[in-house]
Design a protein around this nucleic acid. Structure first.
Lengths: 238, 238
DNA sequence: CGTGTTTATAGTCCAAGTGACCATTAAGGG
DNA sequence: CCCTTAATGGTCACTTGGACTATAAACACG
């Protein structure tokens, strides 16, 4: 490999974030409204340039803090998704973007941050024209997260620090778009060591309509073996 | 996002390839010997710059053809691994590298190609000092491939067009570093629709020492549900 | 030439896992 | 006060997968 920085057209390197959360039984993504061309007025994934002294991960966490307005993003799940490098993905210049997936427990309304005209949570299933190739990034992020729910304990990243098994089950049902049997889901989760841990004291009462549920915290486990397979689309009569 | 190509230090964008193959019951990786500083004389993963009109995927496939000397790399499994962007990963300048994993069936000896002093297959487990952060890239590639064998049909990418179930099993055993029960492996593979398909005619005779094995081809399936879990390191008495 | 080794293949047995249920408990809403 | 809702506890049958035995068909070696 020869290195001659003047022999090649310089690349701009950016990060794009697919910040996902579960709200009202639907998967939502954080989008910002672009204030300038190209795609002025379109919605787009939050993101920005990687600074000269940053890694892409550092830049992504900085952007996450800026765009969500959260004071503490250290505990949030942030993971590299993949890199998008098609030569024509940005009409102005050569931009290579490292995309990340971030999972948030609750959904605080974002303040239209730094360089974005507006920022808001948008339901993923609404057919919304988004800028650049961000629709593909978002689709890839949904695929990845859906697959990860099967064989990791990642679902707790969508939940607040203390949660009920019903809330955890709704995460699966929302991301997968299926219904799960309550008793079987409970048995599977509780049979997996380190997935969830009971909160010593209380049980939640005031909120829902049914019998109050016990509270759990996320456990130390990260992988889920054997996996929790989503109901197959096969074998269903037409 | 503001785009001003002069406001930021330019990034060089490269691709690095972890080209893996199974040979003699051991996982091998294609390494090239660097001819110049830094790391002159060290071994490194093959790779190179992304050209102005290329995507990272295109560049990776071009490099794969160049480095392996294979005339046809269209059928080979090439997959984006992740992007490495630590600011100090290259001592000379800011280089962001998109790493790929490639899986090869057999192991034709590479010709020391274009800009590499030498190229050869190296057993992955040999503790070899490699340049830059390529040891981490290689470790990530091994992790990824090992995990993918569990829940995808990717193992056939290590095999020639026609192969026996014993060869397929050796792929698993080599990548995972474990032994698998022959009858159980056979039952699992054959019970998965579309994983492998029998070759109409022949059965292999001349090669091995034991009873001749039937030949199979890779089937159309890509995902392996339920997965083929590797034997756990747990539950083993000390 | 026969015997032993090696590998492929067929089949058995049983424990764990899981889907499909049913039943009970404990809240809130009319 | 009854109905609805949701959590929780439990059963049962079927499937999966790990451990294991047995047979078949090649080669190596004396």
């Amino acid at each position: 490999m020869e290195y001659d920085k003047y022999a090649y057209e310089p690349f701009a390197v950016t990060v794009d974030l697919a910040v996902l959360t579960v709200r009202d039984g639907a998967l939502h993504v954080l989008l910002v409204e672009r204030g300038q061309d190209p795609y002025a007025g379109h919605w787009a994934l939050p993101g920005g340039f990687v600074e000269p002294d940053e890694s892409a991960e550092t830049a992504a966490r900085r952007e996450l803090a800026e765009e969500t307005g959260l004071s503490d993003v250290t505990g949030l799940h942030l993971e590299q998704l993949r890199t998008y490098s098609e030569p024509d993905r940005d009409p102005r210049m050569r931009v290579v973007s490292v995309a990340f997936t971030a999972l948030l427990p609750d959904a605080p309304e974002p303040h239209g941050g730094s360089d974005a005209a507006d920022a808001r949570w948008v339901e993923c299933d609404t057919a919304l024209p988004v800028a650049f190739d961000h629709d593909r990034i978002l689709a890839d992020a949904r695929d990845r997260v859906g697959a990860q729910l099967e064989y990791t304990c990642l679902a707790t990243a969508f939940c607040p620090p203390e949660f009920t098994l019903g809330e955890l089950r709704q995460v699966y049902e929302t991301v997968w778009g299926t219904e799960l049997d309550r008793p079987n889901f409970r048995r599977k989760v509780l049979a997996t060591p380190g997935f969830v841990e009971p909160v010593p004291g209380a049980a939640r009462l005031t909120g829902g309509r049914g019998k109050p549920a016990a509270l759990y915290r996320a456990g130390p486990a990260t992988s889920l073996v054997p996996p929790l397979l989503r109901p197959s689309r096969e074998g269903r009569p037409a």
